[in-house]
Amino acid sequence: MANFDFDQAEGLRRMLAGPKPRIVTFLSATPHDDKGAMLVNLGASLAHAGSDVLLVDASERGQGIARRLGIDGAPSLLSVARQECALNQVIHQAPQGFGVLSMLHGARYDADDARRMAKSFDMLVKQSGIVMVDGELADDDSFPLPVMAASEIVVQVSTSAASITNAYTLIKRLSQQYGRRPFGILVTNASETEAKVVYDNMATAASRYLAVQLTSMGSVPADEHLHRAARLGRSVVDAFPLAGASVAFRRLAGRFALPGMPQLGRTGGNTQLGA
């Protein structure tokens, strides 16, 4: 009876706590514009599907999503850490349907700043459904906040040889810094067939030479509608809902929003492209 009471109480606590927020850190072996377009359209697709989405620009060089959306001059999470403004003053609502904030604006910070930023970030995460971090590795292969290293990590790659090499190098650096763990692979500017070739080759090499398991997160085709939507200041799923890229982003959003999706920071299920 005691065990039953304990299990019942534990189950009640979990129900009251609600679902745990998702944190996904995106790294890219593609140009900044390609990464920005992917984040905006995936964030918009998730928001259209009913998810509460927050995009966090953690770029230390000031070339991330905040710059693309024109808020790179606004107060950042570092400003909150230094008690220069309140937490609610750093979140901006993008017309595409998600919240966005900058973590650093390229400013230098010390250990005390990082500790305070981590506390503020934890508060933001508790208020959000899916947190998408526009991340990049520092020269010493670190992240601004430890939670980014512990989150799910997805690497964006294209079909070019240079991009594939850079993506593999990113995975190798991360593995050497943080130990063996799974990573997601998202292939952009590629057909499903091309993306499968890229993923299969990378997965084989990572398994053989790094003992690292990769998970396919899907692909997005090259599509002129992406550029047209960007010029209009809109997401492709909103401006051109029948475009090939829109179909792909809706599929990606459905997979990222699934509660049962493999948690890349913990386990390494293998999901096939286009599934």
Rank of each mutant, 00 (worst) to 15 (best):
A2G: 15
N3K: 02
F4E: 15
F6G: 06
A9H: 01
G11I: 11
L12A: 12
R13A: 15
R14W: 03
L16E: 11
G18Y: 15
T25L: 02
F26W: 05
L27F: 15
T30C: 13
P31T: 10
P31N: 14
P31C: 10
K35E: 15
A37E: 07
N41D: 12
L42G: 07
A44F: 09
S45M: 04
S45K: 01
S45Q: 07
L46Y: 13
L46F: 13
V53T: 02
E60K: 00
I65D: 00
L69H: 11
L69Y: 08
G70M: 08
G70W: 09
I71R: 13
I71Y: 10
D72V: 01
A74Q: 04
S76W: 01
L78F: 07
Q83G: 02
Q83H: 07
Q83Y: 05
A86T: 14
Q89L: 06
I91L: 12
H92F: 08
G97P: 11
G97L: 04
G99P: 09
V100Q: 02
S102T: 05
Y109W: 05
Y109H: 04
R115C: 04
S120Q: 11
F121I: 01
Q127T: 12
I130V: 14
V133Q: 09
G135H: 05
G135S: 10
E136L: 06
A138T: 15
A138L: 14
P144F: 01
P146Q: 11
P146Y: 08
V147R: 05
A149L: 03
S151M: 04
I153N: 01
V157K: 09
V157T: 15
V157L: 11
T159Y: 00
A161D: 03
I164Y: 06
Y168A: 13
Y168T: 13
I171V: 15
I171E: 03
S175W: 00
Y178A: 12
P182W: 06
G184R: 04
I185D: 02
L186C: 07
L186E: 05
A190S: 10
A190D: 06
S191C: 08
T193D: 13
E194H: 09
E194D: 12
A195N: 09
N201R: 14
M202E: 10
T204Q: 07
T204V: 08
A206K: 01
S219C: 14
V220N: 08
A222Q: 13
E224Y: 05
R228T: 09
A230C: 06
V236M: 03
V236W: 04
D238L: 00
L252A: 12
A253C: 06
R255N: 14
M261F: 12
Q263H: 11
T267P: 05
G269Q: 11
N270G: 10
T271V: 10
Q272R: 14
G274V: 03
G274A: 13
A275Q: 03
